[in-house]
């Protein structure tokens, strides 16, 4: 079974985000970058499928700056076989150019499955997986929390509002991973050592045109501090007043 996993280097969720002076990007000073957590589920699922099949290849592909090689190495340390970095320093929060680059790389690879995280925790666009599927003319199954593959047919559970949707689809297909799909493995010491020697192909690319322009980034407003309006039943009128006139929720 030949499987591709598309991964992204994202700031750690613990990062204290500062917006850079251009107002359109984040200040990367002191920011720790990690393998996008949803992509870890994708890598784990790919490895499990390959292990179950007994043979095959797991290829990790990323779009990004040279530093994304480290992210790919993380996935190689988990057990993936080789990596491809489509190297560009241009930063885009527009999903389409990224999807075009990935589709271009993947189209001749004859992959049975292409995995993605359901979203990248930095831009939350949820879009690249579905776009790549469209560009390659294959089914896209998003937010998958359980997956079985039998021959050339996949069955996926998707968590939807208030329930679970079960879908069946033919391979090849693109699947985006939801939390709960599996428990990603820790890289072993030996895995990390071996990852340093696995092939990682770095290809220079130019980011194609997209359809979106990033106008500005702003931080969410600071949360207002709570206030105690009084105690006991006597405070109810004051609470109603505050909810109606200050919070405007009544």
């Amino acid at each position: 079974m030949k499987i591709a996993v598309c991964v992204k280097r994202t700031p750690d969720t613990e990062t204290r985000i500062k917006i850079a002076s251009d107002g359109k990007s984040i200040d990367e000073a002191g920011v720790k970058f990690v393998l996008n957590p949803y992509d870890e589920y994708a890598v784990e699922e790919a490895l499990k499928l390959k292990e179950a099949a007994g043979s095959g290849e797991v290829v990790v592909v990323s779009v990004g700056a040279a530093s994304a090689q480290e992210t790919i190495r993380n996935a190689l340390a988990m057990g993936a076989d080789r990596g491809v970095l489509l190297k560009t320093d241009a930063v885009s929060l527009d999903p389409l150019p990224t999807a075009k680059l990935l589709a271009g790389e993947l189209k001749s690879g004859e992959y049975d499955l292409i995995f993605f995280g359901k979203l990248a925790i930095d831009d939350y666009s949820h879009a690249v997986g579905a776009m790549v599927a469209e560009l390659l003319g294959m089914p896209a199954v998003s937010s998958v929390s359980d997956l079985t593959v039998d021959g050339s047919v996949g069955t996926a559970e998707r968590e939807i509002e208030g329930g679970v949707e079960v879908v069946e689809f033919p391979l090849p297909a693109a699947v985006t991973a939801e939390k709960g799909l599996n428990e990603p493995r820790y890289p072993a010491l030996r895995g990390i050592m071996m990852a340093k020697k696995k092939p990682l192909d770095v290809k220079d690319v130019t980011l194609p045109e997209g359809g979106l322009e990033l106008v500005a980034l702003t931080l969410p407003p600071q949360r207002q501090e709570g206030r105690i309006v009084g105690e006991g039943p006597d405070a109810v009128p004051a609470l109603i007043d505050a909810l109606r006139n200050e919070a405007k929720v009544l």
Partner: peptide
């Protein structure tokens, strides 16, 4: 890594390594 509170192995358990 990957042990539960009581020491039992979780699904992503990774044994120790001798270096």
């Amino acid at each position: 890594t990957g042990r539960d509170r009581d020491g039992s192995e979780l699904s992503n358990f990774m044994p120790q390594a001798d270096v």
